[in-house]
Design a binder for these strands. Structure first.
Lengths: 212, 212, 212, 212
DNA sequence: CATGAATGAGAGTTCATTCAT
DNA sequence: TATGAATGAACTCTCATTCAT
């Protein structure tokens, strides 16, 4: 389950990548504004800077575009995350800093995140598993980091707890985007990060050091 | 900001309510299966048990149906929640039980929850504020209960913390639905509830009583 | 293998028949002029006197129209033929008169015949058997009449010969249409009929009464 | 009315012929399978072994290809026929043998025959006369042979009869192809030839030698 | 001469909405 | 009130043809 290839009529791989870049860029903007279903293929072509005929030289169907968009987003997020998590040292301090980093990344890509989570269901039965698999991989990255903390004796958690915590972290990162209408009115991003970290590690009742 | 009225041609209020009941019931089933955009008005009319002509006697546009559906869902959820929260006594024990109750309700209505969160963006700019307002009200209900705990001296939290905790609870309830593909494979509902409550109150590092 | 039903969205059977009549009439005219592939569904709708939307209330796909057209043609031809062959008395004289009658019918419907034989191949794999079956039935009608002559002792032919003769008659009737560019320049219809009957019964070398 | 020239951008006559050979060969295969309209120019180019750009260096439009194909088929058939008819000695025996030869040729080329007769109508008004003219020439070849028999006193037929007989022969040869679904189930090719010759020369009522 | 990426008119089909009955 | 036939704008997708390289 590595990747579902989207067929192109054009042979030149370089060109395919370039055109798909344009296409994805245009599509993301439009999907953000009006969603997948309300965006027409012609609009996407126009936004990408070429004709409808050309668009279809690089995809097979409209749904391919959605797949490409979602695929690209996951890759971007994972790439950034990977880079950071690789430096992780298996300490709680390091874990916190990775979570904060992840929250900031999601905040930066919040439009993309919204598209991803609202339109993913429009993917065909065919493409959905690939996408879910990517999500599982990303959650897995956090699970690994947490597990390191456990191995280092910094935390005491069993497998099930680790998994759930990883999911929570993941969703809290997305929350900033999909509940923006409430959260971004009430908190600054850094406030949100601090408070969520606090809650995550010490809980509602936990003895907390005073907020600095 | 109480409620956005959906215009009907038919005058008989009794009949309007009856027909809309049928309509909503049919639409929910269809939206669950295929989403709002892939469901046609004809299908909704058929599922509701009357003709397309009749359907349009009770709504103005297809989007009205989505609004009615989402509106109804919120009402149902809030109604159940209200009933439970009214008995709340402002203790941590009582709060936990309310959260658990809420999680179970969301699990029971998970299809509806999915429809709500995936299709809400298809509402017009016009209807969205009403819907968001309902969401805010519901989060507010949790805020009130938590505040009671604070007033009773059972918890020490400021306003901002209360709001964030309420949002977290809310989202964790929805998570069971929208991350079902991962969570429902790994946990039973009661496991999920126990573990989330644990994390919520004591955090990752908190000294936890052993799981009973 | 009686008939392949073409689905209509409209329920009123009377109306379906009426609209399909209009549709077929319009389509035949257009198919004659430009063939099936060069005729658009919009043109057919216009020729039928209604909108493209209405057209699709009575068919499922463009190919349905071709099927309806071909189906209708066969029915018309067979109906006329049936009526005549029913009066057939199993004599050679009567057989000749039936053949002549058939030739005249085909001449009258020559446009339809052309459409039928040039476009039939555009039918889907799905519909073709039904159409071929109709053709076989019609050839069978001639086989029966010839067989009567044999039973009455007017002709001496075995099964295989009867079948081939029936096919020849059939094709000679169509020839007047699909080789019109040559035949209709060289012969009047009645000439053609007389000469073909002559050749059919007496052959190239047969002792013929002198042509009047 | 000799031949309608298809314009090429390429000057080298040798090359033009070579490329057109490839093109026709590829196109015939495809037309046999899916007909003219359902075959794309890209497919033809690929089947011919060169690019779509190159294809258009040797033709002006897609329809040119159909013309080239049909033209080529006629040439092939006529060539074979010519070779045989040249040896014809103006006797009935010789005529029969030529007819049998022609039937066998048509059986061998039945796919081509089908393409020719089903797609000819797709030729433009412009090209059709050239094609019909070829057909007339070929019928004429049979007329000549029959006339020889008349001149030699082997047959007694007037001009009109000769022409009609030639057309009949011609169509009976094609019949084996375009009514294959019925005839090729019921008869072997040699049976078909024997029986048609018998009917042609002696008719339905003719005193025939018993079939062996 | 050969290539194949680019084009856009035009195809078939759908479906929200209307309105005469 | 209820019906469902009629509408046509709008959608996705195809493909013959061109032209810069």
């Amino acid at each position: 389950m590595t990747r579902r290839e989207v067929q192109a009529s054009v042979k030149d791989e370089r060109l395919v990548m370039k055109r798909r870049d344009q296409m994805i860029k245009g599509a993301v903007t439009l999907f953000k504004q009006k969603g997948f279903h309300r965006t027409t293929t012609r609009e996407i072509a126009r936004a990408a800077g070429f004709s409808i005929g050309t668009l279809y030289e690089y995809i097979r169907s409209k749904e391919d575009i959605l797949y490409l968009v979602v695929d690209r987003m996951y890759d971007q997020i994972r790439e950034r995350l990977q880079k950071d998590l690789d430096t992780n040292q298996g300490t709680v301090a390091s874990l916190k800093s990775s979570i904060a980093y992840y929250f900031r990344q999601m905040a930066e890509m919040q439009d993309e995140v919204l598209v991803m989570y609202q339109e993913a269901k429009s993917l065909t039965k065919d493409a959905l598993p690939y996408v879910l698999n990517k999500e599982i991989q990303m959650v897995g990255m956090f699970e690994d980091v947490i597990e390191n903390c456990v191995k280092n004796g910094e935390l005491t958690l069993d497998e099930k707890q680790i998994k759930l915590i990883a999911h929570n972290i993941f969703v809290e990162g997305q929350m900033w985007a999909f509940r923006r209408w409430a959260l971004q009115k009430a908190y600054t991003l850094e406030e949100y990060i601090d408070m969520q970290l606090d809650l995550l590690f010490y809980g509602v009742q936990g003895e907390r050091s005073t907020k600095e």
